[in-house]
């Protein structure tokens, strides 16, 4: 392997790791704030990508991304307000089932709005950054920077802000939080809106390097093992798990070929579950899912 290949493999692993991280940050956010495992996060990501593919060409990349975030925040909020809200205080299982329904509704909406043909998101820039004796797409660095900003922002928001504190109380016990005078519906809606924003950014970064297609939700196939490695409840874990999975996936692909990479990632997840059933960053007390 030449130095140039190594550089570009590391860059693509980092990019993929960023995408998985953003997917998982949205998942972990909802687990941490509302105690809901959102199986529709993949469809949120898909919808974010489709919205950007519709808005980007006329508005330009950055305004388009901003508008996509606003749209997806609204979708997240409405998903909670029109659907999830009615399971307030209900069992986690019911909530998971309802998120499945939400995922089907979102898919049908995408097919109705945009049909079945793939679409495209043009990247913010086609510039390349020279590195050693090769060059890396500038969008890779932008993606990494956005991921870091969102991850750090979420960690600080939940650990430092009073709103974040109330959200954590909410995830521990919705009815107790209500007794405390916490506006459970507003805060849950807010958490869903924030998950929508994570999905918007994840969808745009992911789809600009692939295609805007109905297959986008399958990102969860590999993002999910990454979240499990990270313990499902920790942002730091989600990011580190995502980077590990992306790295393992990229390099086994290169060295062993495509038929092995998924097998190896899943073996990694199973081994983790056997050694540490709550992931590397989870706590044994947390029994979600």
């Amino acid at each position: 392997m030449t130095a140039a290949s190594l550089v570009s493999l590391v860059a693509s692993a980092m990019l993929l790791g960023s995408v998985y991280s953003l997917v998982n940050l949205g998942v972990v956010l909802l687990v941490r704030t509302t105690g809901t495992m959102n199986f529709a996060q993949g469809e949120f990501i898909m919808l974010g990508a489709y919205v950007m593919s519709a808005l980007g060409p006329s508005m330009g990349y950055w305004p388009g991304l901003l508008a996509t975030c606003v749209v997806m925040a609204s979708v997240g909020f409405l998903g909670y307000y029109l659907l999830m809200r009615f399971l307030h205080g209900g069992s986690e299982f019911d909530k998971v089932v309802l998120t499945f329904m939400l995922s089907i509704i979102l898919t049908q909406a995408v097919i109705m709005l945009w049909g079945t043909d793939p679409r495209e998101i043009a990247p913010a820039t086609r510039a390349r950054v020279p590195l050693l004796d090769t060059s890396v797409q500038a969008t890779t660095f932008i993606a990494i920077a956005m991921t870091v900003a969102i991850a750090v922002g979420l960690v600080l928001f939940l650990s430092r802000s009073i709103t974040g504190l109330r959200m954590r109380a909410l995830s521990a016990d919705e009815s107790l939080a209500e007794y405390y005078g916490i506006r459970t519906e507003v805060l849950s809606g807010l958490a869903w809106a924030m998950a929508g924003v994570c999905a918007a950014v994840a969808g745009v970064i992911y789809a600009q390097g692939t295609a805007v297609a109905l297959t986008l939700p399958e990102i969860l196939l590999l993002a999910f093992p990454a979240a499990v490695l990270g313990g499902l409840e920790s942002f730091e874990g989600a990011v580190i798990g995502s980077l590990v999975v992306a790295g393992v996936y990229t390099f086994t692909n290169y060295v062993l070929g495509g038929q092995w990479s998924i097998v190896i990632v899943y073996s990694l997840m199973l081994i983790t579950l056997m050694v540490r059933p709550y992931g590397f960053f989870g706590r044994p007390v947390a029994q979600r899912l």
Partner: peptide
């Protein structure tokens, strides 16, 4: 080079080809 359908990234496969 081979990949599963719907792979999230084909960069390593393309790297080998390049």
């Amino acid at each position: 080079q081979t990949a599963p359908p719907g792979a999230a990234s084909l960069s390593s496969q393309l790297q080998t080809i390049v």
